[in-house]
Amino acid sequence: MTKRALITGITGQDGSYLAELLLSKGYKVYGLKRRTSVPIMENIQQIKNEIEFIDGDLQDLSSLIRAVQVAAPDEVYNLAAQSFVATSWEQPVLTAQATAVGVTNMLEAVRIVKPDARFYQASSSEMFGKVVETPQKETTPFYPRSPYGVAKVYGHWITINYRESFDMFACSGILFNHESPRRGVEFVTRKVTDAAARIKLGLQNELRMGNLDAKRDWGFAGDYVKAMWLMLQQDKPDDYVISTGETHTVEELVEIAFNHVGLNWRDYVVIDPKFVRPAEVDLLLGDCTKAKEQLGWELEVGFEQLVKMMVDSDMEKIKKNG
């Protein structure tokens, strides 16, 4: 029988790569999307006719119950969230409602309608925040440093609670930063690669940045969605750190991007205090040993290859669209 999957946040970066992966495996894919006056379909343009969309919102339990009734999924991937860390300080209540309570709503809908469905929750390395040990693994205590990180901790623990309280197959993937050409331009990686392309093409004069010393563990989103799928194929539900095991500074990111188009980043980058977080997360570095050993998950795209891929994609988009 054809497996059925319901993906929340299907129009986002991770949702689009996951939908492609599941379609390639013969799944019937349903995508939950919020109703907007102008549909946001850029990331899934190439597969939108293969997906059945259901209108719904993580803050509206009744819409989620209907979505699970319609999809009757074997697997549910909860990727939707208010996921931009900077915005979480400006809209902390919305972030709590969507990124924290929204997880409970989705779990409740699954528990009520399709309790045998396997559930994946998108947890985040931002939960580690002010890290208490390096590298961070599944047993590392959380110390979130943003409303987004706090909300993700709630979502993570409520998933564990439903697993233990209701015997649901519910997993969390603690994903470290993962990027791609489909990442929103407000995120630092796309901000940098888009700016490098625009400056090279004479469409922009400078790039304003915050803390260049912050260190992150950056991987390719296309690799990370494979880990999500693998988690739901196991005999028992569990939580896994997904990362590269390497850390790079924002400055390294900038240098690779600008070098790739033949520019010296120091000629164009301006440090702007406006882009410094109220509470900075200085270092994130994941230990994905458990995922490699138990899931058989492997990385395919390295950091430098990822940055160059994103710059090339932005160059093509800008030349095509102006």
Rank of each mutant, 00 (worst) to 15 (best):
T2Q: 15
K3F: 10
G9T: 10
G12W: 09
G12Q: 09
D14M: 12
D14W: 03
Y17K: 05
L18N: 04
E20K: 15
E20S: 07
L22H: 07
Y27G: 03
K28S: 13
V29Q: 14
Y30C: 04
L32V: 15
K33L: 15
S37W: 07
P39E: 11
M41Y: 06
E42I: 02
E42G: 02
Q46H: 15
I47T: 03
K48D: 02
E50Q: 15
I51H: 10
D55I: 05
L61S: 05
S62A: 13
S62Y: 10
A72L: 14
Y77D: 03
N78F: 05
L79H: 01
S83H: 13
V85L: 10
T87R: 15
S88Y: 12
Q91C: 09
Q91W: 05
P92A: 12
V93K: 08
L94G: 01
T95H: 07
Q97L: 14
A98Y: 08
T99P: 11
G102V: 08
V103W: 09
V113W: 13
V113G: 10
K114W: 05
D116K: 15
A117D: 04
A117P: 11
F119Q: 08
A122C: 09
A122L: 13
S124Y: 01
E126P: 00
F128M: 00
F128I: 00
G129A: 03
V132H: 01
K137V: 00
T140E: 09
F142I: 00
F142N: 01
F142S: 00
P144F: 01
P147V: 06
A151E: 04
Y154K: 01
Y154M: 03
W157A: 00
I160E: 15
R163E: 10
G173I: 02
G173D: 04
N177E: 03
H178N: 15
S180H: 08
R182D: 07
E186P: 00
F187P: 01
F187C: 05
V192H: 10
K200P: 00
L203Y: 08
N205P: 01
N205T: 13
L207S: 08
M209Q: 08
M209P: 02
G210Y: 08
N211K: 12
D213Y: 04
R216F: 03
R216E: 00
G222V: 04
D223I: 02
V225M: 07
M228K: 01
L230K: 15
Q233R: 14
Q234F: 05
Q234W: 04
K236P: 01
K236V: 07
D239W: 03
Y240G: 01
V241D: 04
I242S: 08
S243E: 01
G245D: 05
G245A: 04
E246Q: 12
L253W: 06
V254I: 15
E255Q: 14
I256H: 09
F258E: 07
H260V: 04
V261L: 09
G262A: 09
R266I: 06
Y268M: 09
V270A: 04
V276Y: 14
V276D: 13
R277M: 15
P278C: 13
A279C: 06
L283N: 03
L283P: 00
L285C: 02
C288G: 09
K290Y: 12
K292L: 01
L295W: 02
V301F: 06
F303S: 07
L306A: 11
S313N: 04
D314L: 00
D314R: 13
E316L: 03
G322L: 12
G322R: 09
G322P: 09
